[in-house]
């Protein structure tokens, strides 16, 4: 779908995060139009996960502004970010390990479909309908990832690759406008990665979702994303089409170093 250029879904300006004396991110900015599929790459320690933590309210920025759907949400709590429509997965999987796969997803459905406390305690018909609806919707989401038959398994018992998919299904259960994926292909073999790419693309197209992927796997980024942003040492280095970014001397320097720097080392 063509991105609507006029009003960006997400507008971030001057985002800076300092941990004590360490500047993890400095003056980060990005404009994301609805429907885009963007890759965020950078060498280790570049600040990618810091960007994701700031964009989901997990950490508060030292400076800068996050405007989502025309609303300044800087400094709000993580659950408010989610309620506004930003969902995420985690680099190191953070499933609710002792809950079933289905309960992982339905726990996230509570945000938009959960019944009121009194109604749930009294087991009113509305609450029971809501529970049935959540279970059905949870299974549908799991089915997107071919995981419906694992619904009653404990999340911790699933193999690694499937756990990653449950994380994406759980994030989708919050019904986001913007989905942030933190290294979704980490630890996957090439075949699994290709399958994951198909799933991400399918989700993107079917739900008309805007997705930002942080990833080390260049084949995934280059094959999937229409636009790539590169950061290094907490600063934006390049932003553009994959081919254009790949040819950017600054990016090559960040990843490979320069001839002179290597000679001097």
């Amino acid at each position: 779908m063509p991105p609507a250029e006029s009003v960006p879904l997400l507008a971030v300006d001057g985002l800076t995060k300092r941990f004590g004396g360490v500047v993890a991110l400095s003056g980060y900015a990005i404009r994301v139009a609805a429907g885009e599929l963007i890759g965020l790459i950078g060498p280790n320690g570049a600040g990618k996960t810091t960007v994701l933590n700031l964009l989901t309210g997990v950490t508060r920025p030292s400076e800068g502004r996050i405007v989502f759907r025309g609303e300044d949400i800087t400094g709000q709590r993580a659950d408010r970010f989610t309620a506004r429509g930003i969902a995420r997965t985690f680099q190191n999987i953070r499933l609710f390990r002792d809950l079933t796969v289905l309960d992982n997803v339905t726990a996230a459905l509570h945000l938009r479909h959960g019944p009121a406390l009194a109604s749930a305690v009294l087991a009113l018909p509305a609450a029971r309908r809501a529970e049935r609806r959540m279970a059905a919707r949870g299974l549908e989401l799991l089915d997107l990832f071919a995981l419906a038959d694992r619904a009653q398994a404990r999340a911790r018992d699933l193999p690694y690759g499937e756990q990653r998919k449950v994380e994406i299904a759980r994030a989708l259960a919050t019904e986001p406008r913007l989905l942030l994926l933190d290294e979704p292909a980490a630890g996957m073999n090439p075949a699994e990665t290709r399958h994951l790419m198909d799933v991400i693309r399918a989700v993107h197209d079917a739900l008309s979702l805007t997705i930002l992927v942080v990833e080390h796997d260049m084949s995934l980024i280059m094959g999937l994303c229409g636009r790539v942003q590169v950061i290094n040492r907490g600063e934006v280095l390049a932003d553009g089409a994959p081919a254009q970014v790949q040819a950017d001397p600054a990016v090559i320097e960040a990843y490979l170093g320069t001839r002179r720097a290597r000679a001097g080392a």
Partner: peptide
């Protein structure tokens, strides 16, 4: 009833992983 409802599920989600629960919209 609390445990069997989705509210109870969000409580257990918090027990399992607070940061993930917050990011799934649990206050």
């Amino acid at each position: 009833r609390v445990k069997q409802s989705s509210l109870g599920r969000t409580m257990m989600a918090m027990r399992e992983n607070e940061m993930a629960a917050a990011c799934m919209g649990v206050p």
